[in-house]
Design a protein around this nucleic acid. Structure first.
Length: 505
RNA sequence: GGCGCUAUCGUCUAGCCCGGUCUAGGACGCCGCCCUCUCACGGCGGAAACUGGGGUUCGAAUCCCCAUAGCGCUACCA
């Protein structure tokens, strides 16, 4: 009797920015699938992009998933038998596997300069041409390779892809997917910094970590042939593939922070409950057979049937999430529980201990306190859009300032009073504004009033996610008041921003 | 442009695999009414969808083909 291998799934986020609601959704389905089959769920950190990955972002992923209550059996923080679970700690493994491919002739070194690749990429290609790389270094002679290696010419390793035939694979949720090999790019496997790309690392790790079911976003369908080919090159049996539809913005495009709050931590700050979010996410492209709309993670595990996963990309609708959240608040807790939850959230002595020193000098009666500090506990402060505008800064200038601030603040890694102050000061300087004038719109956007607790302390307490969300709200308010940043205008600002801010940073 | 995926109310969806029971069901949002010291909750009701065209069939939301549309991928990002 052959024993069926234990079902193992994984979520493999890359720690570049805020923990994304889409990652949570994918993690949820991976988790539920594994658990419904008595299996294990693994968290792996894909930090092979060393330019963009940060430890702060990784920590936020743990925090967000833990807060949501989706536990992992193995991961960088808890360990496990197939570690390490952080790709940056597995580089030697990838290098070995890369050597194998090179030795077997399944991969080749490419010495092309980035500039050349740029040209190749931008060249308009005919319908019969392979996308991506043009195969320039595909058949270099031994000698030629040696010569460049000796000369220290930087190179990448690319996988070889057949010219003929097609890749046919079965997706758990779809019929056969057929993609002609001819349309598959000869992807880079090893970058010139000697780090692997997603494609190599992902296949090697899934194999070594005994992943049986790759449940991931639909955006990966077109890369699946590459992955399958790698399994074949290594002589490994591939796992099952299951591509989940992507969460969408209200305009149906892939869910993005441009158009929606996507940071899980923002939802926490705004007062959403983890069980409501998990429940709502479970409703994205999925329904329980009995039609229940309120269900827990355990309910989902108990009844999970992957065949009930729909394939249309669901729009992430905050209004409906809000309604569901309200049901949890009023139907699942008594006053005592609610109070405990409120304390767990923000109404704690710890938080008050940070707020009080800012508020005390500004009150004359005890009764002044709550009105003065209410905005700390709100999601969107209430104010008229005109309040954001001043003589020094008209509506358009304010919009520009806030837009730039949003970009700059994304880059603040360790969010505290000092870093945030430096950030705003830098913007004021670059925009040639006195700090005093620049700060006005921030006060209103963040606190709802031009006079309030000190800005930078306030920002530190609100936190990165909520601060940035409120700036976005302010931008929305300005847009409604006739100061919308068109996408053209935004592009102009962004170009200008990149030139003036990044060169010197 | 190329390749791929998808397609039921504005949104999340049931139904589709195993055609008739679908005058297409539920939920969010919206509107109206009721409850009520206000508001909210709750209750009741309403407007609102099978993308189009061809087949197959006695019969198609359900099966097939084409068109269209949306989305994704098309990086030394994942």
């Amino acid at each position: 009797m052959t024993e069926k291998p234990v079902v193992r799934t994984r979520v493999a986020p890359s720690p570049t920015g805020d923990p994304h609601i889409g990652t949570a959704c994918q993690a949820l389905f991976d988790y539920v699938f594994a658990k419904s089959r008595g299996g294990q769920f693994v968290l792996r950190i894909e930090d092979t992009d060393r330019a963009r990955s940060t430890p702060e972002s990784e920590a936020k992923i743990f925090e967000a998933l833990r807060w949501l209550g989706i536990p992992w059996d193995e991961g960088p923080d808890v360990g496990g038998p197939y570690g390490p679970y952080r790709q940056s700690e597995r580089t030697e493994i990838y290098r070995e596997h890369c050597r194998t491919l090179l030795d077997k002739g399944h991969a080749y070194r490419c010495f092309c300069a980035p500039e050349r690749l740029e040209t190749v990429r931008n060249k308009k290609r005919g319908p019969d041409e392979r996308p991506g790389y043009d195969g320039h270094c595909r058949n270099l002679g031994e000698e030629e390779i040696r010569r460049r290696l000796d000369a220290g010419v930087p190179f990448v390793v690319r996988m070889r892809v057949p010219d003929e035939g097609e890749c046919v694979f079965k997706d758990m949720l779809r019929n056969e997917v057929r993609i002609p090999w001819h349309n598959v790019d000869e992807q880079v496997l090893m970058k010139s910094d000697n780090f692997p790309t997603y494609h190599l690392a992902n296949v090697v790790d899934d194999r070594l970590m005994r992943i049986t079911h790759v449940i991931r976003g639909e955006e990966w369908i077109s890369s699946t042939p590459k992955h399958l080919l790698l399994y074949e090159y290594f002589g490994w049996a591939p796992p099952e593939f299951c591509h989940l539809p992507l969460l969408r913005n209200p305009d149906k495009s892939k869910l993005s922070k441009r158009k929606n709050p996507t940071s899980i931590l923002y939802y926490r700050e705004a007062g959403f409950l983890p069980e409501a979010i998990v429940n709502y996410l479970g409703q994205m492209a999925y329904t329980l057979a009995d039609g229940r709309e309120m269900f827990s993670l355990a309910d989902m595990v108990e009844t999970f049937d992957p065949r009930r996963i729909g394939l249309g990309g669901p729009v992430f609708d905050i209004a409906k999430l809000t309604w569901l959240n309200g049901r949890y608040l009023r139907e699942t807790m008594d006053a005592e529980t609610l109070l405990a939850r409120l304390r767990e959230w923000k109404l704690s002595d710890d938080v008050w201990a940070r707020i009080l020193p800012l508020a005390q000098p500004r009150i004359e009666k005890l009764s002044d306190l709550v009105p003065l500090t209410a905005f700390f506990f709100a999601d969107r402060p209430q104010y008229a859009a005109e309040a954001l505008i001043s003589k020094k800064l008209d509506g358009d200038a304010t919009a520009r300032l806030l837009r730039i601030a949003l970009w700059e603040m994304e880059k603040v890694r360790d969010w505290n009073k000092e870093t945030v102050q430096a950030c705003v000061a830098r913007i004021a300087e670059k925009e040639d504004l006195k700090l005093r004038d620049a700060v006005g719109p921030f006060f209103v956007a963040l606190t709802g009033s031009p006079s309030s607790t000190p800005l930078f302390d306030t920002m530190a307490i609100l936190g990165s996610d909520m601060t940035r969300r409120r700036l976005q709200y302010a931008l929305d308010a300005l847009a409604e008041a006739g100061h919308a940043l068109s996408s053209k205008k935004t592009k102009e600002i962004e170009k200008d921003y990149r030139e003036r801010y990044e060169a010197t940073s």
